[in-house]
């Protein structure tokens, strides 16, 4: 257990350190959201309607871009080989790394949501709903994205290939995240239904992600 705690502590401090790049994700999120009014026009009513979708897309892209570094940095300095060889089960180590990544890169996105909600003319309830769905949904993005990150380090290809492989898998999270936010805002359906399914998706990815990532690391590294 201490090994996993040490891994999480190390990953979080590395990510938040100079050159870690976790906070650039938040900056990217901010920039994407600020770009939107330039594309659709500064119509506050329209922005309010599109708000949850814009925030969710921004968070999706931001978490995807930061995931690129999840395993590559460790692979470059050799610590990934140590993690693979250690006595800690690789699945648990992968889960710990993803958790650390979510703490460093996912949580700041959730924290930034209220500020961005102001820019998009969302009221308190709507901002709260989007932040809550992001809190429940971003773990799913991190844990499914981890599979792509593991494949990227095994294949020594990142960037576009990673995005192409991971984005279709994140469609369910996007659907239920935006649906739950919209339900809180105006929608015909109650908030509870899509939100519970979103939580279920997160829990399922918590199981599938580490196993798939560990499998691709174990079979792929040589």
């Amino acid at each position: 257990m201490t090994a996993l705690a040490a891994l999480i502590r190390r990953d979080v401090s590395v990510a938040l350190r100079v050159g870690g790049g976790a906070l650039i994700g938040v900056l990217f999120f901010l920039t994407v959201v600020v770009l939107m009014p330039f594309a659709v026009g500064p119509d506050l009513a329209l922005l309010k309607k599109l708000g949850p979708a814009i925030l969710w897309l921004g968070a999706l892209l931001a978490s995807l871009l930061t995931l690129d570094r999840l395993f590559t940095a460790d692979h470059d300095d050799g610590s990934l080989d140590l993690i693979v060889m250690s006595r800690t089960p690789l699945e648990l180590a992968c889960a710990a790394k993803a958790l650390a990544h979510w703490l460093a890169a996912g949580l700041p996105l959730v924290a930034a949501t209220p500020v961005l909600g102001l820019l998009l003319n969302l009221d308190g309830t709507a901002t709260g709903a989007v932040a809550l769905t992001l809190l429940a949904g971003t773990p799913a993005l991190t844990f499914t994205g981890m599979i792509g990150a593991a494949l990227a380090v095994v294949l020594r290809r990142g960037g576009l290939l990673l995005s192409v492989l991971v984005l279709p898998l994140s469609i369910p999270v996007l659907i239920f995240g935006v649906a739950a936010s919209n339900a809180a805002l105006s929608g015909p359906s109650p908030f509870g239904t899509p939100f519970s399914i979103l939580c279920a998706l997160s829990l399922a990815s918590l199981v599938i992600g580490p196993f798939a990532a560990a499998a691709s690391l174990r079979h792929g590294l040589d």
Binding site: L151, V154, L165, I208, A212, S216, H219, G220
Partner: peptide, 9 residues
Amino acid sequence: RAAAVLTLV
């Protein structure tokens, strides 16, 4: 091996 993991996921 990479494609196999992705196919199963």
